[in-house]
């Protein structure tokens, strides 16, 4: 598959320019046409900042200090300016549908705010388009709901409105920043099915940021695991989930409960905690918590290298020695439940 979005060597800085702190350092990944790409990691790993940097919506005080952002246009990868891709090529779904929908605007007006500003649609054209979009994202009564205010909708419906708002601009890449985290489990499932359906129907590429490995497994083709501001492993989901090539990913997967996990034993956990952006160790940042660490790890330059005998790429130099029991393929890779959203 040909690449659609490519992020190279992204560096994000905060704090004074003289002594900056880097919440994200040298992150890169590539998303192909029609592919769902997962960016997974715990809070503070820099996954959400990375995603926001893709569309240039970094929070106040965080700045991009390096890196190239490219989008495919007319068959070639080209660096883009944010004004070019916002509402034209890249769309974004935010985590909190309550705070990400302007409370003073009707749902219908909100959904088409982008194309109205971008292409100068007439109000009437925008209205009927809004109803179509609301129907596409599975709103039960799109005509009536277009006239409602965001606060009159449930969390799940609000997130559907958010998705419709992002789709209104006909993006080729949809950035999703933990779009199901604020929702309850049943609604989470509906939204995941919806995203899966839209992706299939529209041939969209999706970049999905989450801390939920189960969501990655269900929705994504490829995944990058982030730790302390770096990508430590990337590869196809079924590979990473069954044969992780980094001790951190392996630890994450072991700590994830499956249907067969014995209930009377505590879940496996990685000892220690992720270092903050200000106090990250030299060399491999995971080494202090790693059971496989060697003295050399403390001086290691961060490189995502190909792994012999695996399609994944890993930042760990001990890949060959990781061994360990293979993870239960069946339990980890239960297929996405069928049906439409």
């Amino acid at each position: 598959m040909s690449p659609l979005l490519r992020i190279t060597d992204l560096v994000l800085e905060t704090g004074p320019a003289a002594a900056p702190v880097r919440p994200v350092s040298h992150v890169g990944f590539e998303v192909a046409h029609g592919e769902a790409f997962g960016l997974v990691g715990e809070s503070g790993s820099g996954k959400s900042l990375t995603l926001r940097a893709v569309i240039g919506l970094l929070p106040e005080g965080v700045r991009q200090a390096g890196g190239t952002l490219e989008l495919e246009r007319d068959g070639a990868m080209r660096p883009y300016r944010f004004a070019e891709v916002r509402g034209r090529g890249i769309g974004m779904v935010f985590q909190e549908p309550m705070t990400a929908l302007n409370p003073t605007m009707r749902v219908g007006d909100l959904v088409t705010a982008g194309p109205r500003a971008r292409y100068g649609w007439s109000r009437r054209a925008a209205r009927s388009r809004a109803v179509d979009l609301l129907a596409e994202v599975g709103m039960p009564d799109p005509k009536a709901q277009a006239r409602m205010w965001p606060h009159q909708l449930s969390g799940g419906l609000r997130q559907r409105v958010m998705i419709a708002m992002a789709l209104a601009t006909e993006p080729s890449v949809l950035l999703c920043d933990e779009p199901t985290t604020a929702l309850d489990v049943a609604v989470q499932d509906q939204i995941l099915r919806l995203l899966h359906r839209i992706r299939t129907e529209r041939g969209l590429s999706i970049v999905f940021v989450t801390h939920d490995l189960g969501v990655v497994r269900r929705l994504c083709d490829r995944v990058a695991v982030m730790y302390a501001g770096q990508v430590v492993e990337t590869g196809r989901v079924e590979e990473v989930f069954t044969r992780p090539t980094h001790p951190y990913s392996a630890g994450l997967l072991r700590s994830m409960p499956t249907q067969d996990t014995p209930r009377d034993r505590p879940l496996a956990a990685i000892p220690g905690g992720q270092p903050g952006a200000g106090d990250r160790p030299e060399g491999c940042r995971f080494a202090p918590r790693c059971g496989h660490a060697l003295p050399a790890c403390a001086g290691l330059a961060h490189v995502l290298a190909a792994v012999p005998g695996s399609p994944s790429r890993s930042a760990c130099i001990r890949v060959a020695d990781l061994g360990g029991p293979p993870l239960d393929r069946e339990a980890l890779l239960s297929p996405l439940p069928g049906g439409t959203a």
């Binding site: 569309i55 509402g87 974004m92 705070t99 990400a100 929908l101 302007n102 500003a117 708002m165 992002a166």
Partner: peptide, 11 residues
């Protein structure tokens, strides 16, 4: 966030 969401949509 609604300001960011509007920007993301091209407003």
């Amino acid at each position: 966030e609604y300001h960011a969401a509007a920007q993301a949509a091209g407003v």
